Simulated assay, not measured.
Amino acid sequence: MRKASRLFEIIQILKRARHAVTAQAIADQLEVTPRSIYRDIVALQAMRVPIEGERGLGYILRPGFDLPPLMFSVEETEAIVLGLALLERTGDQALKQAAKGVNAKIAAAVPGPLRQVLQSNALQAWGSIAPAPDGIDLGMVRHAIRDEQKLLLDYRDEWGNATERLIRPLALIYYSATAVIVAWCELRQAIRNFRADRVEDCQPDDTFFRGEGNRLRDLWISGWTSGNPAST
């Protein structure tokens, strides 16, 4: 989790809390070290976020502080609801969990009539649900795309041949059956697609391709054929 996102989440945790929350408790929720939380608290206090407390005793957010509200029209709210429902059909467990958090945060922030839209279950997204792939964490792939970090795959192609690929992940396409990773393949020296359900293992490499992602995505988009972005 990047620092900006972590600072936002710390504020949300403190807003929901009824009592002082320790740095350890916050760290456990965000999967970082207490030392990181101590630094984040100092950074937030420097930005005049009214957090009170100290190490060992915990922290509280003074009543009355809030982030600027998000105001959506009914149609915009319905678009969000449907988009979150569609995430349930992917095999990305982290995105499914994130969707629940988004729903809760929006429901707590919007006026009553729009809150009813979020909670009414009037909009549904039905269809087959993609199973979570066994050999790869799609959350890690999304993280690698953002950080422009290479990934090392143990992959089995459609004929069952096993191969090892070092890739530069560029995009994720979610289908009803599986997710497809669009990447620059170091072995083939070209853009290739890798089905998540054919990945037997995936590990982050210690090398990066920073500054190249947008150029490679433009190359990928320029090669689309028949309106299918997954074509190669």
Score class of each variant (00 low, 15 high):
M1H: 08
M1F: 10
R2T: 09
R2G: 08
A4D: 12
L7T: 02
I11Y: 04
L14V: 04
D28A: 11
D28R: 11
P34K: 08
P34G: 08
R35G: 10
S36T: 15
S36C: 10
V42L: 10
A43E: 14
I51N: 12
G53C: 07
L57A: 15
G58S: 08
L61V: 07
L61R: 01
F65S: 06
D66C: 12
L67P: 03
P69F: 03
M71V: 15
S73K: 09
E75K: 11
E76H: 11
A79F: 14
I80P: 01
V81C: 12
L82V: 15
L87M: 13
R89A: 07
Q93C: 05
L95D: 05
Q97V: 05
G101M: 10
V102D: 07
V102L: 14
A104W: 07
A108P: 05
P113F: 07
L118Y: 03
Q119A: 08
Q119V: 02
A122W: 01
L123E: 04
W126K: 05
S128W: 03
A130E: 02
P133H: 03
D137E: 13
D137K: 12
L138N: 03
G139N: 08
R142D: 04
I145L: 07
I145Q: 01
E148Y: 06
L152G: 01
Y155P: 01
Y155K: 02
D157N: 15
E164A: 13
R168V: 00
A171Y: 10
L172E: 04
Y174Q: 07
Y175T: 12
S176L: 13
S176R: 14
A177V: 04
A179N: 02
I181K: 02
V182C: 13
V182E: 04
W184P: 00
W184N: 01
L187A: 08
N193P: 04
F194C: 06
D201S: 13
C202H: 00
D205E: 14
D206M: 09
D206I: 05
T207R: 11
F209P: 00
E212F: 03
L216R: 05
L216K: 03
L219D: 13
W220C: 04
I221K: 15
W224L: 04
N228I: 06
S231K: 08
